[in-house]
């Protein structure tokens, strides 16, 4: 369904607010992975947030303000916009056009949205990287973010990249399809339910016996890893970009 460019000498990078706030090094890993394939990466410093937190809370005017800000920030070229988060990418690709339906900005927003791709999806379908695993054998667990799975449909790409790493074994998680309980403001508006969900998710991940768990979305990461850390579990969580970068440079 998505139309991928045949090649990409230049790409924009939208790091997401959460990466900027808490995980900038994972954002950097994504940039490095793109550069490794010879892409010139543009990362406009005025970018901020896709707007999803306000959107899912029902504050559409505020969401539009912030969304339009991103649209303008990336308006100076036509190159693809790559996002190291399935959830933020889905917001920008699929929800922005709906937000501006019937408004004068709609055409402009649509042009923006069509340029948005999730990082692993862009790598796997456009840049076709070849990774040589330089790390020791390791077992990892993979957590799919809900929007990466159901909206961006990029889980297969994330897994395809991981499959290139010959010393990495990806272990399945029980109830892998199930939400980790983050859901943006859901985690603080329904803390008890969210807590029950993250507990189960963390337990399922721990049960795999993996050494680390990987995600493509820092929201899930902050939630699950935050819980594991609180429980003093030795299990670490990593963004897939960071993991890939570490493995090919070990």
């Amino acid at each position: 369904m998505l139309h991928f460019p045949a090649s990409a000498p230049v790409a924009n990078y939208f790091g997401t607010c959460l990466v900027d706030m808490c995980y900038p090094e994972y954002g950097m890993a994504g940039i490095r992975l793109l550069r490794r394939e010879g892409v010139e990466v543009l990362c406009p410093p005025r970018q901020s947030c896709c707007g999803q937190p306000a959107y899912n809370s029902g504050f559409l005017d505020e969401t539009r303000t912030v969304a339009l800000h991103q649209v303008k920030v990336f308006a100076d070229n036509d190159a693809p916009i790559v996002v190291p988060s399935g959830s933020c990418a889905a917001m920008m690709r699929y929800h922005y056009p709906r937000l501006f339906e019937g408004r004068p900005e709609h055409a402009e927003v649509l042009r923006f949205s069509e340029r948005v791709f999730e990082l692993t999806q862009f790598l796997n379908n456009v840049l076709h990287p070849a990774y040589k695993d330089a790390g020791a054998p390791i077992k990892v667990a993979w957590h799919s973010s809900c929007h990466a799975r159901r909206e961006m449909d990029c889980i297969k790409d994330s897994l395809a990249l991981l499959a290139q790493l010959e010393n990495v074994t990806v272990l399945p998680i029980d109830n892998e399809h199930e939400c980790c309980g983050f859901g943006g403001t859901f985690s603080v508006k329904q803390p008890e339910i969210s807590a029950a969900m993250v507990r189960d998710k963390a337990a399922a991940i721990a049960k795999t016996g993996a050494e680390v768990f990987l995600v493509g979305d820092c929201g899930c990461l902050m939630n699950i890893a935050g819980h594991l850390e609180k429980e003093r579990s030795p299990m670490r969580g990593l963004h897939i970009a960071e993991f890939l970068w570490e493995r090919i440079h070990a």
Binding site: N56, C146, H147, R150, E151, H177, E178, C179, G181, F182, G183, G184, F186, S187, K189, Q190, I193, S194, M197
Partner: peptide, 9 residues
């Protein structure tokens, strides 16, 4: 309406 993480399942 608040009792959903909007996970999409």
């Amino acid at each position: 309406a608040l009792a959903s993480s909007l996970c999409g399942a």
